[in-house]
């Protein structure tokens, strides 16, 4: 019996409607991701990469089709159940880091743990461990404003991994970073993927980032135009 893909999307459509305009952001997209994969989603601006990530992760709703995570259809979940699901099984990294500016690095990493119901003491312990993993334990008490862009993104990665989620969604994780920081972050992601076997879905413009992925999905106008492995072989 084949194993169940961790992410399975079938024929999903997403349409944004405004008073004057309708945008078909995703058109009949189907995709499967196996557990432990690092998948890069690439394509020109406006092709629907971020929308795909949002729809697959349950951050956004879909108009038709279905998304299953570990066999669980997201459509069947209420908003609160989706939130709980995200808290337990998903981590997010964004281009603009999205750290809470009023919390320290450590508190930012602790936050998903507290949401998941971990005790404060345990959360602190885990958070410091994760910050150590990303090399920022000495900066634990700094607020985001006092950190560089690369450091902020490493805190964001630590936060995404704090709950040891099955899937980490990363939307342009290196988009705001210089080459050196981009390399460091990608090395970190690859290392953690190897160590923990977590699934990473990365949205990126960067070929260097894509090179770190085992599989690359290319999109245009809301459709997947290719789905290849690192070596260019079709999936």
């Amino acid at each position: 019996m084949d194993s169940v893909p961790i992410i399975q999307a079938e024929g999903i459509d997403k349409i944004y409607r405004s008073a004057s305009d309708t945008v078909h952001a995703l058109r009949n997209v189907s995709v499967k991701v196996e557990s432990g994969e690092i998948v890069a989603v690439m394509g020109p601006s406006g092709c629907g990469k971020t929308t795909l990530l949002n729809c697959l992760s349950g951050l956004d709703s879909i108009d038709s089709g279905n998304v299953r995570i570990n066999g669980q259809s997201l459509r069947d979940l209420t908003d609160d159940q989706l939130s709980e699901y995200r808290a337990r099984s998903m981590g997010f990294v964004f281009q603009t880091f999205n750290l809470l500016p009023v919390l320290s690095a450590q508190e930012n990493v602790e936050l998903p743990l507290l949401v998941a119901g971990v005790s404060s003491k345990k959360a602190t312990e885990i958070a410091l461990g994760k910050l150590d993993d990303v090399g920022l334990v000495d900066w634990a008490n700094r607020r985001p404003a006092a950190l560089s862009g690369g450091q902020r993104q490493r805190v964001a990665v630590a936060r995404a991994l704090a709950n040891e989620p099955a899937i980490v969604w990363a939307d342009e994780p290196t988009g705001n970073l210089d080459t050196e920081n981009e390399r460091e972050i990608m090395e970190l992601i690859v290392r953690l993927n190897k160590e923990n076997g977590q699934t990473f879905v990365l949205v990126t413009h960067s070929d260097d980032v894509a090179k770190s992925a085992r599989r690359i999905i290319r999109m245009r106008d809301g459709e997947i135009i290719s789905d290849t492995n690192r070596d260019g072989d079709s999936k």
């Binding site: 951050l59 939130s83 997010f92 999205n98 809470l100």
Partner: peptide, 12 residues
């Protein structure tokens, strides 16, 4: 930040 908190699992 609200969006991020929702992504982290905060319920409405």
């Amino acid at each position: 930040s609200i969006g991020m908190m929702r992504a982290l699992g905060y319920k409405g």
